[in-house]
Amino acid sequence: MARRLRPVDLGFVGAAPVRLVFAREVSASPEQVFRALAEDLPGWTQWFPTVALARSTDGGAGREIRLRGGTRLVETVLVAKEPEVYAYRVDATNAPGIRALVEEWRLAPRGTGTRVQWTFAADGTAPFRWVFRLARAGLGRTFRDAVTSLDRRLTRA
Rank of each mutant, 00 (worst) to 15 (best):
M1I: 06
M1L: 05
G11R: 04
F12H: 01
V13M: 04
A15I: 07
A16M: 10
A16G: 04
P17R: 03
L20M: 12
A23H: 09
A23G: 10
R24Y: 02
V26M: 11
A28Q: 13
S29A: 13
S29I: 08
P30K: 10
F34N: 05
A36Y: 02
A36W: 02
A38I: 05
E39A: 06
D40Q: 06
D40N: 05
P42T: 07
T45H: 04
Q46G: 14
Q46L: 14
W47T: 15
W47N: 15
P49D: 13
V51R: 02
V51F: 00
A52R: 10
A52F: 07
A52M: 04
A54E: 00
S56H: 06
G59K: 14
G60L: 13
A61F: 15
R66S: 04
L67T: 15
T71V: 14
L73G: 05
L73A: 01
V79T: 14
V79Y: 13
E82S: 07
E84L: 07
Y88N: 01
R89I: 10
V90T: 09
V90Y: 09
D91H: 05
D91Y: 03
A92R: 14
A92V: 06
P96Q: 02
G97E: 10
G97N: 08
A100Y: 03
A100H: 11
A100N: 06
L101P: 12
W105Q: 05
P109I: 01
R110G: 13
R115T: 15
V116N: 10
W118Y: 07
D123M: 14
T125F: 11
A126M: 12
A126L: 14
A126H: 14
P127R: 14
P127L: 15
F128W: 10
F132S: 03
R141P: 15
R141T: 14
T142V: 13
R144G: 05
D145I: 09
D145Y: 03
R152H: 02
R156G: 00
R156T: 01
